[in-house]
């Protein structure tokens, strides 16, 4: 057990280190710009006042490492500075949007994970049957679709033709939970379709890989029932790869929300990031980028930790 704790600890430490390096990258990336930062970003014709405000906001007069630690320190204490575009505190801009994004991604995860694991499992068990072929053909098509294509097809179908769901998913705090769910139906469905296809294919591959191992042949030759082979012999060994698949796709969801949010004008962090990039609102871009990175890395760490714990060889060391 000690060894496992050690591995888990090591993985978490590595993740945090990676995050730290990324925060440096995010910060330095802006520094590395040729010429004067303010001019490069605001353009040659920016008014002197804007330039001055910009310099002050980014505290450009201080040395780089001082600014980095100030920035990072602020980040940890919840003070993210102010937006260049409208001067409002970034924490305020980001807070509820981030919650919205997480809400959307979680809703998509809750639907897609069970569905795709079950369907992927069934496809693997019924390999080369009609069912398997239909699954693999339809998932192959779906992973080829850009998210916005799926989104617009859903809009054309469910909100223009059938007028069932709104094509614009604007949330506000006064909505009840059910209303919120209703509002995000289409963006959620888009995410589910895209991510479930990937997850099904990978689950199927992982299960097939396990089913072809010699110990499964041994279980068959011991005269065990098919159901027992699947549940007691294949499943415990498939757990680790399948968990990995799920987590990888959850990490993908975190990022996948960006496009879907733009299509449905959903007030999430992705929408904010895209807007800020267009406006070159650097502090907001930095802050939301770091939050995305942290979430993404967090999910990946979780995946690795779970897959370490669920690996029977590691759980019972020599």
């Amino acid at each position: 057990m000690n060894m496992i704790l050690k591995m888990v600890f090591k993985r978490i430490a590595l993740g945090l280190l990676t995050l730290l390096v990324i925060s440096v990258l995010i910060f330095v990336g802006v520094e590395a710009l040729p010429g004067d930062l303010a001019e490069a970003i605001l353009g040659q014709n920016a008014s002197p006042e804007t330039v001055a405000a910009f310099r002050q906001e980014l505290k450009l007069d201080l040395p780089a490492h001082v600014r980095y630690f100030a920035w990072l320190g602020g980040f940890l204490t919840g003070d993210l500075g102010n937006s260049l575009a409208n001067g409002r505190p970034i924490a305020e801009l980001i807070g509820w949007r981030f919650a919205n994004s997480i809400f959307l991604a979680s809703a998509a995860a809750v639907v897609s994970v069970p569905v795709s694991v079950v369907l992927g499992l069934l496809a693997a068990l019924k390999r080369n049957t009609l069912f398997d072929k239909i699954i693999s053909m339809s998932t192959l098509s779906t992973i080829s679709f850009p998210e916005f294509f799926v989104a617009y097809i859903l809009i054309a179908l469910f909100s223009v033709k059938l007028v069932l769901f709104p094509s614009i998913s604007s949330l506000n705090d006064h909505m009840t939970f059910v209303e919120k769910i209703y509002t995000i139906t289409l963006p959620c469905l888009t995410l589910v379709l895209v991510v479930a296809a990937h997850m099904m294919r990978q689950t199927r591959a992982a299960i097939i890989n396990i089913l072809s191992s010699p110990f499964i042949e041994m279980a068959r030759l011991k005269g065990l029932k098919q159901s027992r082979i699947i549940v007691l012999h294949a499943f415990p060994n498939a757990l680790s790869p399948v968990i990995n698949v799920i987590a990888l796709n959850l990490a993908y969801l975190v990022v996948g929300v960006v496009i879907v949010e733009v299509v449905f004008v959903y007030p999430g962090l992705g929408q904010l990031l895209v807007d800020s990039v267009a406006k070159r609102d650097i502090p907001v871009v930095q802050a939301s980028g770091l939050i995305f990175a942290a979430t993404y890395i967090g999910v990946n760490i979780l995946a690795d930790v779970l897959s370490i714990i669920s690996n029977p060889r590691l759980r019972n060391p020599r």
């Binding site: 010699p214 030759l221 007691l232 060994n237």
Partner: peptide, 21 residues
């Protein structure tokens, strides 16, 4: 019949035992 009346011993025991049990 398999396992009960006819049993099998494979070349690689390391691969033929289930690592989880």
């Amino acid at each position: 019949l398999r396992g009960r009346r006819i049993a099998y011993v494979a070349q690689s025991a390391a691969a033929s035992f289930n690592p989880a049990h």
